[in-house]
């Protein structure tokens, strides 16, 4: 909830909305997927998180591709299909966390 940008009346509305969310009358806004709390926002932390997000999607894609290839005996076709998908998923993971930065 952006209390500051709503003007003088905004603080009441945002507090009202927070109270309504707490009582289950409204659904909370979708979390942005960003990890809140600025304490971990050092360059080292951001780099590690970025790397983990990218590599994890890639690992899953390679595991699925390789496993299916082993099962169907079509090595390396499915691995080659899943590899770009994994790269794309990794980039979309990173975009979801670090993109759209104000």
């Amino acid at each position: 909830m952006n209390t500051e940008s709503n003007g003088p009346d905004g603080s009441f509305n945002s507090r009202l909305q927070a109270a309504r969310i707490k009582q289950g009358l409204e659904t909370p806004p979708k979390p942005t997927g960003k990890i809140p709390g600025g304490a971990g926002a050092s360059a080292w932390g951001i780099g590690l998180r970025l790397g983990v997000e990218m590599v994890s999607a890639l690992v899953v894609a390679i595991a699925i591709g390789y496993g299916l290839d082993r099962y169907f005996g079509t090595r390396p076709v499915l691995l080659l299909v899943f590899l770009p998908l994994g790269i794309a998923a990794g980039i979309s993971n990173v975009w979801r966390q670090f993109g759209r930065e104000e």
Binding site: R49, V52, E53, I64, G86
Partner: peptide, 20 residues
């Protein structure tokens, strides 16, 4: 498929972040 892979990658990213 990209969304599904992204969903599955949560397992790895959640565990590797803590472990690493």
């Amino acid at each position: 498929p990209i969304e599904i892979l992204s969903y599955l990658s949560r397992i790895i990213s959640l565990s590797v972040r803590l472990f690493a």
